[in-house]
Design a protein around this nucleic acid. Structure first.
Lengths: 391, 391
DNA sequence: GACTTAAGTTCGAGTCTCGTACTTAATGGG
DNA sequence: CCCATTAAGTACGAGACTCGAACTTAAGTC
């Protein structure tokens, strides 16, 4: 009669252990190292149970036990730290002009990260080689999962790509899986979603349960994190906000229509507005504009108008989704307050101030590797959610 | 380091049983009656386990065992039906001009439902009396939970109301709890959210995991069901779409700004456009308009323009959320295709047709009691999710 | 009436969590 | 220097649960 609510998998006693293990892992991740006794208090589990679970984690090399730290009254405890050396998640990004990889361990530390330029037919081979290289350089540890971020639409199966603008991604998951010698399952995800997840775990929205990430390149896309979970919609299309009818209703968009949001706030619109040329990458272009702004009031004014339209679109998104934090990425980062300040103003004007507070606007801090980092985090998600055994 | 992913509660063996019990319940609810053997196949549990679980459910009067139905080869099975007589959820709605109540059992059957007109100071007493009456008339069975739907903003605690437009709802949860003699916990929810949940379980979007519900009264609000779960945002404000800057940018809104969506598609905008007066309720007003439309081309044209703006706003929502079905409620229902057809057209124009399919637009089938029904369903949710023991 | 087929139950084995009791490792006072 | 105190961690038995295999039961089939 109704859609699914809980898990549709039968739960066994082993599943129980996995759940509680993941509970301990999350506690270590979120609140830092702790003794077994502290962990028992934090998780609500019995001391004995925590002892067994930590034992298992130590055996899997997921945690390390520090020396006891005396000072208190009774027997001092040995703090358990999440090193996570044993378990690794691989995140990859296949983009229009570069590929990148991030290898992340359970403890949240980036073990390796690398970006290589690549275009056209060289992209996929470059990605596969990068994946092989990265895994080869970290021989210890078990690869728990891998995910490839792609600028395109990914179907609900997490594998097949429904549509990409400028590159071919058919068979991508299988190709990467082969490059990794079938060491783990490979899934595919949308780049904005991955970046949003990265920001909510490592970046400008760390620890925020309701966050929104906005990509800023030629196109504008959003990644939606709600209640700590990525929202993907019924066909994986959720967050494709570039073509909302917002902003200058006469602006012609690359999609053939008029009035799309990205026709007002996409990279090309911005460059046209300030009257500057497009450089090799969106970031470069924006840096050039930012460098010019202090001396050129016309540029500043153009950016202010842009910021207003950004705020207008964010007002729509805020009214629909009510996020706590909005992170702007891509070309918005170099422009900083030139765009943020007017965006905040127009956002304020459009929110019913009585009850709703404005979501905080922040700039991305993760740079080029945001999507790959988020993909790596998503590759590890199964462990933290208790779906994948750590042993 | 990151937001919560899994459950933050420790899992015991009893929790295990609850989970598996809820698995059996959901299977019965979604796929209908089945023998124990069939249930074992559907859920993946062992035959023995299903036997024990069904035994417990029978003891709690949640299921009934029919006579065996011969015809096949071996020993015929006894189909188990979800009657759910023992366990009840109470849904209430406190609205501007009426109060209503729905009593729902675990099997999804509406046991009682009643609406009474009430305004101003008489509202709350009327609601409390209605709640008492409804519970008194169904003495058998255990009240598992109760929820009150309110046209306003509800905080994350599910109890306190941050803001309501035209009525006072402070202390509402406690008052209702007292009226029910503390028989169960009472929570409070937003009316659009409740109605959305009702549509996704009993109405026009039954069984749809990604659904959007649009209220149509003086104000316009949305209820968002994503992956079967209600989306409420960081402060409970998610879905407050009435003041998105969409439609006629010069239209003056009740909130003081111009260009809000509900200034173009709210009840007052519609009535002004067709040049007809407001009657006692939004539904009456719309029925009068619908009655006039066949004979009056000017009315039809006004509704077509309205429908276009409805589609424009839905295009925004579809791009952000990617729902499978959109259900229109409130005053939109009597107007039917007069609004739906142009809305579909303008929606099609604004969706990147290459990859995205248009969400299906449907009219609500639940009438006035949608919100109360959804509230009742939400009151039972704990049982289906395994958080509340059925014994 | 014997055989086949499939549903449902019984039973023992294996896991898991939990509370209690116990051991261990530190501090502090006599 | 020794012993009480305090608190961390472990050992162990009780209880709950799932599972597979064996068993019983109720039909149809030859």
């Amino acid at each position: 009669m109704g859609p699914a609510i809980g898990s549709d998998q039968p739960a066994s006693t082993e599943g129980l252990r996995r759940r509680n293990t993941s509970l301990v892992l999350r506690s270590l991740r979120m609140h830092g190292p702790a003794t077994r006794a502290e962990l028992a208090k934090r998780t609500g589990l019995a001391k004995a149970t925590v002892g067994v679970i930590v034992g298992g984690l130590a055996e899997a090399a997921a945690v390390d036990e520090a020396d006891s730290v005396p000072g208190g009254r009774g027997r001092p405890g040995r703090p358990v730290t999440l090193t996570g050396g044993g378990l690794l998640g691989l995140g990859l990004e296949l983009n229009v002009d570069y590929v990148s990889a991030v290898l992340l361990d359970l403890g949240g530390r980036v073990r390796l990260s690398e970006t290589r330029p690549a275009t056209d037919a060289a992209r996929l081979p470059a990605l596969l080689e990068l994946a092989r290289d990265v895994v080869r350089r970290e021989p210890g540890g078990r690869l728990v999962g891998a995910m490839v971020a792609v600028p395109g639409l990914v179907r609900g199966d997490d594998r097949s790509v429904a549509w990409t603008p400028n590159l071919d991604a058919t068979g991508l998951a299988a190709d990467v899986e082969a490059a990794l010698d079938g060491r783990c399952r490979v899934s595919v995800g949308n780049d904005a979603n991955c970046a949003a997840y990265a920001e909510s775990h490592h970046g400008a929205a760390t620890g925020v349960a309701h966050a929104l990430y906005l990509t800023g390149t030629v196109g504008i896309g959003a990644g939606i994190v709600s209640d700590g979970r990525l929202q993907r919609g019924s066909t994986g299309f959720a967050g494709e906000v570039g073509h909302m009818p917002i902003g200058d209703s006469t602006a012609r968009c690359g999609c053939g229509r008029r009035g799309c949001w990205e026709a007002s706030v996409g990279l090309h619109a911005m460059l046209t507005a300030v009257g500057m040329p497009e450089l090799a990458t969106p970031l470069r272009s924006a840096q050039a504009v930012a460098a010019r702004a202090p001396a050129d009031p016309a540029v500043r004014e153009a950016l202010a108008r842009l910021g207003e339209d950004v705020g207008l679109g964010l007002a729509v998104l805020a009214n629909v989704l009510d996020p706590e934090v909005v992170v702007l990425g891509g070309y918005f980062v170099p422009l900083g307050e030139h765009v943020l300040a007017p965006a905040r103003r127009s956002l304020d004007e459009r929110l019913p101030s009585a009850a709703q507070r404005r979501p905080e606007l922040r700039l991305s801090t993760l740079g080029m590797e945001a999507a790959a980092l988020g993909a790596a985090e998503l590759a590890l998600e199964g462990v933290f959610s208790g779906d994948v055994p750590v042993g």
